[in-house]
Write a protein that binds this DNA or RNA. Structure first.
Lengths: 106, 106
DNA sequence: CCTACGTTTGGCAATATAGCCAAGTGATGT
DNA sequence: ACATCACTTGGCTATATTGCCAAACGTAGG
């Protein structure tokens, strides 16, 4: 694998890495239903607001969400809704995993 | 977020985490074209074979690939090809990121 | 049985990630 | 100007991930 190819997969991996965290997946799922402020997401996640802010920063850097300040609040929206299609596939993967276990148990 | 919800996103995140590494993305991409042995993938990736074996183990645990021993070799195949659709969306995200930078530069 | 080959596993050090608290920033109202 | 609210950033520790080497394992052939 040459340096150029390596770099391409590295970049792609960064996007997936941004999604590969329970809280960040939850955030994306919530934003699918419309914009939310940091405080709103914090209330749902029940972790420190600084932690939520950092998660949002990671999603933003990855190009997955957009931030928009209105007054004192900052509202986040989903920038690339196609990531929602990941959820369906992930469920398929999980089903396959369950199927696998059933077959092993036989 | 209650414990049940937390667990659901945790499980989903595990699948994405398995994909969120350059070498593992490369492997998935290669397996899209058909089965490959550990040695073949090692030659392409140019890292230690034990490292490749561990990457494959992670993909297998996540339910993304299947292993099949034939003689001395072990061949891996893609178990859930829908993950290939991720690549398209990731490219969209990257395009959006580039677009973003252009607008900022103005 | 012994050896060779392909692969996996254990162990370790280097690096990256997650979450909290505390301090800083930006906007609003007094 | 000052205080307050909403959020971000810095700094820290705990935990997880990565990749190498070495050792173990499974299969096939002599």
């Amino acid at each position: 694998m040459d340096a150029r190819t390596q770099a391409r997969y590295q970049t792609r991996a960064q996007v997936l890495k941004a999604l590969a965290h329970p809280s960040r997946l939850f955030i994306v799922d919530q934003l699918a239903g419309g914009e939310h402020s940091v405080a709103e997401l914090t209330a749902m996640l029940e972790v420190d607001i600084s932690t939520v802010s950092k998660h949002l920063s990671i999603l933003k850097t990855a190009g997955l969400v957009l931030d928009q300040r209105r007054g004192k609040q900052v509202f986040y929206t989903l920038q690339t809704p196609c990531v929602l299609s990941f959820f369906g596939c992930v469920e398929t993967v999980l089903s396959a995993r369950v199927q696998e276990r059933i077959e092993l148990a036989r």
